[in-house]
């Protein structure tokens, strides 16, 4: 456990000045800022909308972009950047000759990649709520203050996080094995497009394909609108079948990856 914590801290120390780390921070900031600017400029047209609808439109705009294409691509990039730091510096040999078990080194790297995805999605919640409330303040005509969506958003993004773990495991392993960016990127891109097509065509078994999971996680959102005041009109069912599949794939690929690392000769 000690080795894991030391390795995890080292991962942060190493990556804190790299694009991989900052992409997880800047992407949510930039995206939320853009949508904020869009809403700000069109605020007159939306002045009549009730608070809940405004929130759904605002967060939906952000979620829509994230869920289908951006999240898988971000995961491709994070999986790559966490591993490429060692490929580039030729440091696999030193990592695996440390007096720290190979499992601790491997799992710390994996969980650090997972942490970056989590951080990114948590920032999305934070920035969405923050910019929504900011909109309500700078444009008092928009009734953002009438409704609180932070609970639902947290659940939704948590579901998105769980749905992305299958992809993360696969991309992490690909980037661990391949030194260059093109292979994991190419495979990830093609698989993501395939995932989008499968979901769009409502293929019966699309929930088995990990790259479809983020889209499914959002599209399977059951929304029953009952407008009783004080009662939450949107409920999120987190543990749907694609989430279970995503978690199973993540666990299997993570374990398989460890055995590949054990067998692999260190260059």
């Amino acid at each position: 456990m000690k080795g894991f914590i030391l390795s995890f801290r080292s991962e942060f120390y190493k990556s804190r000045k790299t694009a991989g780390f900052w992409s997880a921070v800047i992407l949510p900031l930039l995206l939320c800022l853009l949508i904020f600017a869009g809403f700000y400029s069109r605020s007159d047209k939306m002045a009549m909308e009730p608070g809940m609808i405004l929130w759904v439109q605002f967060s939906g705009a952000i979620l829509g972009v994230m869920g289908s294409l951006l999240l898988p691509m971000l995961i491709v990039f994070i999986g790559y950047s966490v591993n490429s730091i060692e490929h580039k510096a030729d440091t696999w040999k030193t990592l695996f000759s440390l007096p720290i078990s190979k499992f601790a080194v491997y799992s710390a790297k994996y969980f650090y990649a997972m942490f970056l995805v989590f951080l990114c999605l948590a920032l999305f919640v934070l920035f969405t709520v923050g910019f929504g409330n900011l909109l309500g303040t700078v444009k008092p005509g928009l009734k953002f203050h009438d409704y609180n969506m932070s609970g639902v958003l947290s659940q939704l993004y948590f579901k998105l996080f769980l749905s992305s773990l299958g992809i993360l495991s696969i991309q992490f392993l690909l980037s661990l094995l391949f030194r260059d960016f093109l292979k994991p990127m190419g495979i990830g891109f093609v698989a993501t497009i395939t995932g989008v097509i499968l979901v769009a065509n409502q293929w019966t078994y699309d929930y088995l394909f990990p790259y479809s999971h983020p889209m499914l996680a959002l599209s399977a959102l059951p929304q029953h609108h009952n407008h009783t005041p004080g009662n939450n009109p949107i409920s999120v069912d987190i543990f749907t079948r694609e989430i279970y599949i995503s978690l199973i794939i993540a666990a299997l690929v993570f374990i398989a990856g460890y055995f590949i690392v054990l067998k692999k000769s260190v260059k």
Binding site: L6, S7, R9, S10, Y13, K14, K17, T18, I85, K88, A89, D90, T91, K93, T94, L98, P99, I100
Partner: peptide
């Protein structure tokens, strides 16, 4: 060839290893 993180300073490279050890 020595395994060094080129985006970190010399001392940061050592501090990173010191953290691990």
């Amino acid at each position: 060839q020595p395994a060094i993180y080129l985006h970190l300073s010399g001392k940061e490279n050592l501090l990173n290893r010191a953290l691990l050890l």
